[in-house]
């Protein structure tokens, strides 16, 4: 893994992410937020993105598994013929907002959706994000073509 943090976790950064999403949407709109997550997905997580472009989704699965585990979230991975489903049953970020009595707006989930859209851009994958209930969602990586870049 390109980034693999250890030690303590400062969960309050989720509050700042929530505040940032609200601020960017209200001041600059969704296109700006989309561009922020595109740069994050493709430039910061270049290693994961290059893997996807080359037809390898394992680095992304490994990244999700590591960080949802590190933050004591709960998830189930299901593998099918052409897809891998990462089903988050307890999102640590949502849990932390709720613990701080901060309502979780639909916009908070844009961080997953926009990151996944950006990760799948120009790759042989589609990554579908479906919010099921508060703190529960699936992220399904589906191979849509055999082409890799």
């Amino acid at each position: 893994m390109r980034y693999k943090d250890t030690g303590e976790v400062h969960m309050d950064f989720h509050l700042a992410t929530n505040e940032t999403i609200e601020y960017v949407l209200s001041e600059y709109g969704q296109d700006f937020l989309t561009e922020l997550f595109r740069r994050t997905a493709q430039n910061v997580y270049r290693d994961i993105y290059n893997g996807l472009k080359n037809g390898d989704s394992q680095k992304l699965i490994e990244h999700w598994s590591y960080y949802y585990t590190r933050e004591k979230g709960a998830f189930i991975i299901t593998e099918g013929a052409n897809e891998v489903s990462f089903h988050v049953t307890e999102c640590p970020a949502v849990r932390h907002l709720l613990a701080n009595k901060i309502p979780v707006n639909r916009e908070f989930y844009l961080q997953m959706e926009l990151m996944n859209n950006a990760w799948s851009e120009d790759t042989p994958f589609n990554i579908e994000t479906s919010v099921l209930s508060e703190g529960e969602y699936t992220m399904t990586i589906r191979r849509t073509s055999n082409d890799s870049q």
Partner: peptide, 16 residues
């Protein structure tokens, strides 16, 4: 989810 550990790298992009 942007991991807590990686908020730093996300807002670094926002700063730019």
């Amino acid at each position: 989810m942007i991991p807590s550990d990686h908020f730093v790298r996300m807002y670094n992009e926002l700063f730019k």
